[in-house]
Structure formats: C-alpha cells, structure tokens
C-alpha cells in the first residue's frame, strides 16, 4: 500500500483536568478513508480524545495533528473540513429541522443556494424529508441523531468524528446510522468514532483501539486483535467446584467470570472434546471469539460509573 500522510496523528497526547489525567499519553494514527474506532468503558477518556481532535478542548501536552495541522494553531482551518457528532445532541430547540441545518450552514459560509440544495440531499440521505418543518423537540431519539449526522455533513467534511453515534437507540435506528456511516466510508470520508456496541465495531471498523484509564491497551484490526488476545474460539462452561481443578491440569487458558468459566482457544472443537472426556463435562457452549471477549479480558468485569 502507498504510504499516505495520516489524517490524524497523535503522539504521546495528554489531557489533564486539574489533578485528573483523563488522557494519559496516547499515540495513534488515522489513515485517509479509514473507519477508526475508540472503545473503552465509561470514563476511559474517549470523549476527551474526540474533543481534542475536534479542536474544542486544548491538549495538555503531546502532539496532535489533524490534516497535517497542529490543533492548537489551526483550529478554524481544521474545523472547516471536519464534521462533528457530539456525545450529547445539541440541536437548536428554537428552530425546525430545516432551520437547524440552514442556520448551521451559515457558520461554514455556505452560500444560500448551495446550502438549500445540500440540505435537501442530506434530509433525503438521513430520511428526514417529511420532518423538514417540524421543531426538533418532537423528533424521536433516532431522528435527532440522524439530524445531528446530517448537520455534521453540511460542509462536505473529509473527516467526521462521532462520539457514541448510536447510544440509546433501538436496533432499527442504530442500524440505519451504521448503514449511513458505511455509505459515507464508501465515498471516501474518513470516520472516527467511539462506541459501546462491540459487535458493530468489530464488523465496521477497519482499525480500532481499546482505551482504559486514559491509556490505549491495544490497537489494530479487529480480527487481528481477537486472534492475538483470545484465539479463534471460546468455550463456556458452568462454574462447578472441581472444574477449575481439572482445567488447571489440562493447561488451558481460561478465566473465571462469576457463574461461568470462559476458555480461550484456537481449537474449540478439540478443547470441548478433551474437556468432556477429562473433566466429565456435559454442558458446554462453543462459539467464535469476539471483540467483547477481548474487551472484557482487557478491561475487566468491574462496573464503571
């Protein structure tokens, strides 16, 4: 592959809020046209990282470049070519759907005629044509999110940064958003997002990082990350006394997670056969390893916030 300059380049990026270090020396590159995910439990520092990329929160130290420009010196320039979907919807409640977009387009100096054309296209794209003259309060959660997405696309951005674009949406609304992101990616837009939906991240992200306590724990292609940290398969068995003992003897890699034991392997068939013979197990579930397994293995099961 040709070596192109990254769209985002972060090196040893740090963000402190007073005593608290929210982002603790992260480094990553996002390439042009890529869909790049940030995963991690609540409080991991994802939103803080997104805000620094969006040039709305200044970094404490380290290096952060977007489109090859330093975020602290070129914020207006960078923001001109970026679209933003913030974690919290901030649509203008004083305006209708159409007025929200029209008003926002002015901040980018989009001429009236171009803006009107673009708004029609975008309302079609996010399937909100028939809500054009509705006040935003009366939209459903999914519609609001789509409108925020449309707003982020007004300026034809080369990069869009989305902070939990699908949080709190029902499956239909969620799929619609992911579908839109996929078609944006096809058009060559670089996409950076945070999400809690690991299965979707696994399917859609070209590369991703898992963050916790302000640090990046792993990065890479989803399939590679799973292979490296889990293997190809997982066998789950009920946590009975005696089983741990047997597992220890059979030298498999496993983890006790409350009522169940999870065994990581590259050969699920073999392990399950072996276990049913050696440990006299009859109840087992064998499945493919997923990103969720990696996530839980790396960040633990403890509840956050």
């Amino acid at each position: 592959m040709v070596n192109i300059n990254p769209i985002i380049k972060a090196e040893d990026l740090v963000k402190r809020y007073g005593e608290l270090t929210a982002v603790d020396g992260v480094s990553f590159h996002v390439k042009e046209g890529e869909m790049f995910g940030f995963l991690g439990p609540n409080g991991a520092g994802k939103t803080t990282t997104m805000k620094m990329i969006q040039c709305v929160s200044p970094k404490t130290s380290g290096k952060l470049e977007v489109f090859g420009m330093d975020v602290s010196a070129h914020e207006r320039e960078i923001k001109k070519y970026m679209g933003v979907v913030p974690q919290e919807n901030n649509l203008d409640p004083d305006f209708t759907v159409y007025e929200n977009l029209r008003n926002y387009s002015r901040y980018f100096d989009i001429p009236r005629e171009d803006a009107e054309k673009r708004i029609e296209e975008l309302l079609n794209f996010v399937q909100l044509q028939d809500k054009k003259n509705v006040m935003t309060e009366s939209l459903s959660g999914g519609m609001k999110r789509r409108l925020v997405l449309a707003r982020a696309l007004l300026n034809n951005p080369q990069l869009i940064v989305l902070d939990e674009p699908t949080v709190g949406l029902d499956p239909q609304a969620r799929h619609l958003i992911w579908d839109k992101l996929r078609s944006l990616k096809k058009r060559g837009v670089t996409i950076v997002l945070t999400t809690h939906y690991l299965d979707e991240a696994e399917k859609l992200c070209d590369r991703l990082v898992v963050m916790d306590y302000g640090k990046i724990l792993v990065d890479g292609k989803p399939s590679q990350i799973i292979k490296d940290h889990i293997g190809t398969g997982v066998v789950e068995v009920d946590n009975h006394p005696g089983i741990v003992e047997c597992l220890r003897k059979s030298e498999t890699s496993y983890e006790v997670m409350g009522e169940i034991i999870v065994i990581y392997t590259n050969d699920a068939m073999h392990i399950s056969d072996q276990l049913s013979i050696e440990c006299a197990l009859d109840k087992m579930t064998t499945r493919k390893a997923t990103l969720e397994d990696v996530f839980l293995k790396l960040t633990g099961r403890k509840l956050r916030e």
Partner: peptide, 14 residues
C-alpha cells in the same frame, strides 16, 4: 441548557 455554543464551536467559529 440548549448547548447552542457547543454546537457553534464545532464549526470554524471559536
């Protein structure tokens, strides 16, 4: 309450 300023500073305005 309306987060209007947050929305605006995501554009070329500061």
């Amino acid at each position: 309450y309306q987060k209007t300023f947050d929305a605006i500073i995501a554009t070329p305005l500061i």
